[in-house]
């Protein structure tokens, strides 16, 4: 694959196209990131809190609902950016031929790829932020903490958006997107410390879960509750995953457009 220069306008105009689609059905699009965390917080937060009470996190006891809230933010980021990158990009690539149409305009492959990627990350960021705001309203996360967490939300969205694009470029049929969902996404969102501290898992499983990128994102989003001493490594781990995913995604999608 040749490296073709992207222009800020090129990336922006592709992103803008996706935003126009989103804007035309904004009410429907805003529903999942609002309703999902509310349901999760009600079901797990209020439903399980009386049973669990407090959890031991980094040596301190934390009310379960406050422990859960950052996990919900991370899940909002994961689902929205991954599904946009995987399903929506696959449809734009293989059914709607949007990528092919865009490449008849004066846009480079890099423009179109980055535009799609940034859009997937935008959806993750919107979902993470709305989830965070729901948590703020429920008094489970501080507003100032949410503002300071925005860079983490963006980073996580870029990472999982790139993973989604990699899936879109790797599968041949839309049903095959289910394979990484069942093999990666579901294990990740259940095991990575979103609903319970990972140290309750068997040691080997806990170590495996800690290597998955959602674990690093959740740990970092819990910074108001405390950070593990090696947190800069978690940040680097996320950035490394993001770079690798984005590179692999670009390499997988390119041959579908250029021969």
């Amino acid at each position: 694959m040749k490296l073709i220069t992207a222009t800020p306008w090129g990336v922006y105009t592709v992103w803008w196209r996706h935003f126009q689609v989103y804007r035309s059905t904004w009410l429907v699009n805003c529903l999942p990131p609002i309703s999902e965390p509310v349901v999760y917080l009600l079901a797990f937060g209020y439903g399980l809190s009386p049973l669990i009470g407090e959890v031991d996190y980094l040596g301190q006891m934390i009310p379960y609902a406050r422990f859960l809230a950052p996990g919900m933010i991370a899940i909002g980021v994961l689902f929205q950016s991954f599904f946009e990158g995987a399903y929506s990009s696959f449809i734009r690539l293989n059914f709607q031929k949007t990528w092919q149409a865009l490449l008849t305009a004066p846009l480079s492959y890099t423009d179109v790829f980055l535009g799609d990627w940034v859009w997937a990350a935008t959806k993750g960021t919107i979902a993470g932020t709305i989830t965070g705001l729901v948590a703020v309203l429920a008094n489970l996360y501080d507003l100032s903490s949410l503002v300071l967490s925005l860079p983490l939300i963006v980073l996580g969205s870029l990472l999982f958006g790139a993973f989604g694009l990699l899936v879109a470029g790797a599968v041949n049929k839309v049903d095959q997107v289910n394979v990484p969902i069942f093999l990666v996404i579901i294990p990740m969102f259940t095991l990575c410390g979103t609903y319970f501290p990972r140290d309750t898992l068997p040691p080997l499983l806990a170590k495996f879960a800690a290597l998955l990128p959602l674990a690093s994102l959740v740990d970092l989003l819990r910074w108001p509750l405390g950070l593990p001493p090696w947190w800069p490594l978690l940040l680097l781990w996320l950035i490394g995953w993001m770079v690798v995913m984005a590179r692999l995604a670009a390499l997988r999608i390119y041959p579908r457009l250029f021969s």
Partner: peptide, 30 residues
């Protein structure tokens, strides 16, 4: 491609937009 117009064999109009917006939104790329 800034000076080219391309009608590909496959239909790749944008089903998310109306006829008019297919043009105005694509014009944005130029």
């Amino acid at each position: 491609r800034a000076q080219m117009g391309i009608v590909t064999q496959e239909d790749n109009l944008d089903p998310d937009f109306t006829v008019f917006k297919n043009l105005t939104h694509f014009a944005h790329h130029y």
